[in-house]
Computed example of a mutant assay.
Amino acid sequence: MQLTVLGCSGSAPGPRLPTSGYLVSAGGVRIVLELGGGVFGALTRHCDPFDLDAVLLSHLHLDHCADFSALTVHRRGHPEPPFDVREHRLPVFAPSHAPSRLAAAHAADRAELARLDLRTTFDFVPLKPGRYEVGDVAVEVAAAKHICEAYAFRLTHEGSSLVFTGDTVPCRELVDLARGADLLLADAAWRAQAGRANYLHMSGREAGEVAREAGVGRLVLTHVLPWSDSAGVLADAAEAFPGPVALAAPDEVYEV
């Protein structure tokens, strides 16, 4: 299994850095996790968007799904698609309100929104905790703790597994999902600070503590805010987690 970072900036893009987006390839299966702002362009450097087998959206803040609109334009407007996109709808695993939320983000006004039905192009699968399959890749879903409906994912193929936290604070569900994973791709927005609201994201230290408790093989930190001290976030995580730890970087590829 291979993980390619398409974008990893937290909440807002950084200089030459899209927000959240990751490509997972395993065997002949290609899955994109998140489609934040700027991610679609990065995706096209690594994969023909028509070759995708599924989209996974942990939640529907725009830094995780804004470029779903670009994917929609590509699939609905391309003059020479390799197949009939209405007959081969792309599976999209997302919170239950995704069809209306993503349509509203795509349409320019109410008149266009009234005509737009994304379900003719995409096969929306409402997420809930449990197990799904995309080809030979098993996808286990757990509830995350964010300020909206949000999920974390564990992808497993031929005995290898990676866990993506989405946006969350530490919680038992996340630790249980990540138990023994080869790689944990973890939300680590900032350095721990006294008095910081703790209902949005993990700090680097908290991500390290989750990784240690779950006994993962290695930790990759993502979603660091553009104005955060990334070196400090990394140092805090490394202090809490005894295994290999790194900051996600655009176009970085990890073998899992």
Rank of each mutant, 00 (worst) to 15 (best):
T4F: 12
V5R: 00
A12M: 15
P13H: 00
G14D: 10
G14S: 12
T19L: 08
G28L: 06
V32A: 10
V32I: 13
L33I: 11
L35F: 06
G36W: 01
G38F: 07
A42Q: 14
L43V: 13
T44P: 10
T44K: 09
C47D: 05
D48V: 13
P49C: 11
V55R: 00
L57F: 05
S58N: 07
L60A: 07
L62S: 13
D63A: 12
H64P: 02
D67G: 04
D67S: 05
F68Q: 04
S69Y: 04
A70Y: 01
H74A: 14
H78K: 11
E80Q: 13
P82I: 08
H88I: 13
H88N: 14
H88C: 13
S96P: 01
H97L: 15
P99E: 10
L102K: 03
L102R: 06
H106P: 03
D109E: 11
E112L: 13
E112S: 12
A114K: 11
D117E: 15
R119K: 04
T121N: 03
P126V: 07
G130Y: 07
V137K: 02
V137G: 02
A138Y: 04
V141E: 09
A143V: 15
H146S: 13
H146D: 11
A150P: 07
A150T: 12
Y151S: 09
F153P: 03
S160F: 02
C171M: 09
C171K: 03
E173G: 08
V175A: 10
G180W: 09
D187S: 02
D187G: 00
A188F: 00
A188H: 00
A189N: 00
A189Y: 00
R191C: 12
R191S: 08
N198G: 10
Y199N: 09
L200C: 15
H201C: 10
G204T: 01
R205M: 09
A207H: 03
G208C: 08
G208S: 03
E209D: 15
E213H: 10
A214L: 11
A214S: 13
G215V: 07
V216A: 03
R218N: 05
D229R: 00
A235R: 00
A238E: 10
E239P: 09
F241W: 12
P242E: 14
G243F: 05
G243W: 02
P244V: 11
P244S: 08
V245H: 05
L247M: 06
A248D: 01
A248Q: 00
A249N: 08
E252P: 04
V253H: 04
V256I: 15
